[in-house]
């Protein structure tokens, strides 16, 4: 069992159970990002680069603080800075660390056509196994949060692993380890809920009446959660979706269409087989040849009387 984790609860494009003898008996994990404590220092981006040995190309300033401007094969998490003007004219800087949400019901895994390219561990982490990735980009199509990116260099899909390698040996993710304000914390999902509840209570006492936890039910909850000052308007945070769900198109494509499609193909072929043995082939016989010859002679006689 060397190099096997034996705790895979879901495996992409696989119709039988993956090895899952080992459970997450100490509880599923979660990362809680308290955006109200975030100062936008990007230490989490640096820690992610450092731990994962990633170095994105040095780009250009695109007129705002987002740098790099988008997630990518070499940037698995980025800070997104939104300047929000309230109705009373006051300005608020809403900074959100963007990256994989590690959905309990992952759209990427549902969409992936390659066996074992995406797995979900018992602890809740959704991980890409790039050696099995074929580069089709279906995970991008399936993700409700627009997170996975296909690398332009190797045509493999990449995203935040929630530092599955660190978590597997009892460490917290690199971004959590480095966050200087304690805005990112990591633990069991249950503990993170409790911690979030305390933070929300504190925020409410400070005037943020709509403070709340972002753990969207439409994707079964997520293993990366946010504490938001404006939980009633998650879109303010650089387009965090209010009710993320796997698109019905993706559900149809990767749900009913698959078995029904194979059934339709098999049924069509079988219908042909039944017709052949039940009714049989349609053969041209001697009678047809004689009639045809007679007709041909008649027609030629008409043409050349």
């Amino acid at each position: 069992m060397a190099l096997q984790s034996l705790d895979i609860v879901r495996r992409s494009a696989t119709t039988t159970p993956a090895p899952q003898a080992r459970g997450a008996h100490s509880g599923q994990v979660a990362k809680l990002i308290d955006v109200t404590k975030c100062i936008g220092c990007k230490a989490c981006q640096v820690a992610c680069m450092e731990w994962n040995d990633l170095r994105d190309e040095v780009g250009h300033c695109s007129g705002h603080f987002d740098n790099p401007p988008d997630l990518g094969g070499q940037s698995w998490t980025i800070m997104k800075f939104a300047e929000h003007e309230h109705a009373d004219g006051s300005l608020e800087w809403l900074i959100r660390k963007d990256g994989c949400m590690h959905c309990a019901d992952p759209g990427c895994l549902k969409a992936c056509p390659s066996p074992g390219a995406i797995v979900q561990y018992a602890n809740g982490i959704v991980d890409f196994h790039e050696e099995n990735c074929i580069g089709c980009g279906y995970c991008v199509t399936g993700c409700p949060f627009d997170v996975p990116r296909i690398s332009k260099h190797d045509r493999k899909a990449y995203k935040c692993t929630l530092c599955s390698d660190r978590v597997a040996v009892g460490q917290e993710p690199a971004c959590v380890k480095t966050c200087p304000t304690g805005a990112i914390v990591f633990g069991s999902k249950e503990d993170m809920h409790e911690h979030a509840a305390e933070r929300i209570e504190d925020l409410k006492s400070r005037g943020y009446a709509n403070a709340g936890l972002y753990d969207p039910a439409g994707v079964g909850g997520t293993h990366v959660m946010y504490v938001l000052h404006h939980a009633d308007q998650p879109e303010l945070y650089s387009g965090l979706p209010k009710n993320p769900v796997i698109s019905p198109f993706v559900s149809l494509w990767k749900g009913a269409a698959k078995p029904l499609g194979l059934l339709a193909i098999a049924a069509t072929a079988f219908a042909g087989f039944l017709h052949y043995i039940g009714i049989g082939p349609n053969r041209t016989d001697e009678h047809d040849e004689r009639e045809a010859e007679r007709e041909a002679q008649r027609l030629r006689a008409e043409e050349h009387p």
């Binding site: 042909g272 052949y276 082939p281 349609n282 053969r283 041209t284 040849e289 009639e291 045809a292 010859e293």
Partner: peptide
């Protein structure tokens, strides 16, 4: 497969008078 003589039309290009008449 069902209508005998059809496949030959697309391989060798020809059909018999009887096939066409039928």
């Amino acid at each position: 497969i069902w209508v005998k003589g059809s496949l030959r039309a697309m391989t060798e290009g020809k059909v018999s008078y009887g096939w066409a008449w039928r």
